[in-house]
């Protein structure tokens, strides 16, 4: 409790109480309580709201079983549709994260150590400004870009590269591009911050000792940037796996994102219980996955929070 005393001394009692209360309120009301409700919902039978809290609203694991076995009335033994979407979502999120990492590391390095003064600031600004636009509008703008009569198709057909417009949407290219772009800043800035704190002399020292550029990155820059890389990857992975706007707007007719199934559960199917169960499955799987990957790459949680 020592830190608490220091905290009080540093901020003065009134301010300390205010800060403590607001943080606790935020954590409890905004994060823990809703999640607990979700957990509770997911473990109860699906009954209409008037019966909530009555005997029919009893505890059951059926919604968790549903993702594996599906409906009891269906002829299939397993719920291959939902599991397939679930796996596809995770794999796609991993790929989007990797693509973002490959794109953003050079940009972050360039911003931190190569671009000087005005040019670097201009680049940062042109990265940030598009994100002032609402996420849904951004997704729609990708639809405009990649549509069959969109700018890209017009251009490619115009220069004779394509005979007829290519359906970027049906082939999920628009979706991939949109997802990659959606959280790109959350990859760039953590990496930028950690790369920027690297002493330039270390890069010069490695070069002076004969190192080619790739080894400088492999042995000096990337190890230094590892905390930033992990926090960027964690955020992008979590948010991509949980993305709803881009998949709904840019996804082709045949591609379904797991969040869309959750959304259906809450809205169209009015099955809050199953929606909650699916949401919790997604959340826990993502957390476990991130923890395992961190373990493999020997990153500690404290480093990510840095």
């Amino acid at each position: 409790m020592n830190w608490l005393r220091t905290f009080f001394r540093r901020n003065g009692t009134p301010l300390a109480i205010f800060l403590l209360c607001s943080v606790l309120f935020w954590m409890f009301m905004m994060i823990i309580l809703p999640q607990l409700f979700m957990v509770d919902f997911s473990l109860r039978a699906n009954v209409p709201p008037p019966q909530w809290g009555t005997d029919t609203h009893s505890y059951t694991l059926e919604h968790y079983k549903y993702i594996v076995y599906g409906s009891s009335t269906s002829t299939d033994q397993f719920n291959t549709l939902d599991m397939g979407v679930f796996l596809r979502t995770l794999v796609a999120a991993i790929f989007v994260t990797l693509i973002d990492l490959i794109l953003c590391y050079p940009i972050a390095y360039y911003l931190a150590h190569v671009a000087r003064g005005g040019w670097g600031r201009l680049m940062v600004l042109s990265l940030i400004v598009p994100f002032w636009i609402n996420e849904i509008l951004r997704a729609f703008s990708f639809k405009v870009l990649f549509g069959t009569t969109g700018i890209i198709n017009n251009f490619l057909v115009g220069i004779g590269f394509l005979d007829q417009p290519y359906d970027f949407i049906r082939n999920d290219i628009a979706l991939w591009a949109g997802l990659t772009y959606a959280y790109i800043l959350l990859m760039i800035f953590p990496i930028y911050n950690s790369v920027e704190s690297l002493d330039r002399n270390q890069i010069d020292a490695a070069r002076d000792l004969g190192s080619p550029w790739w080894r400088i990155h492999w042995r000096v820059v990337i190890p230094h940037a590892k905390p930033g890389i992990s926090s960027g990857c964690t955020m992008v992975f979590m948010l991509t796996a949980g993305a709803l706007a881009a998949p709904s707007i840019l996804g082709g007719p045949s591609s379904l994102w797991f969040t869309q199934i959750i959304y259906q559960g809450f809205n169209q199917a009015s099955n809050w219980a199953r929606g909650s169960a699916y949401a919790i499955i997604l959340l826990l799987t993502c957390i476990v996955f991130v923890l395992v990957v961190m373990k493999v790459f020997k990153v500690r949680l404290g480093e990510i929070a840095r």
Binding site: D199, N201, Q202, D204, A205, A206, R207, D208, L209, G210, S211, P212, R219, V220
Partner: peptide, 16 residues
């Protein structure tokens, strides 16, 4: 610098 027969000790050492 990576192909010159020199080695530099930096003002702040720059160890890894």
């Amino acid at each position: 610098p990576n192909r010159r027969p020199t080695a530099l000790i930096f003002q702040n050492l720059a160890l890894f």
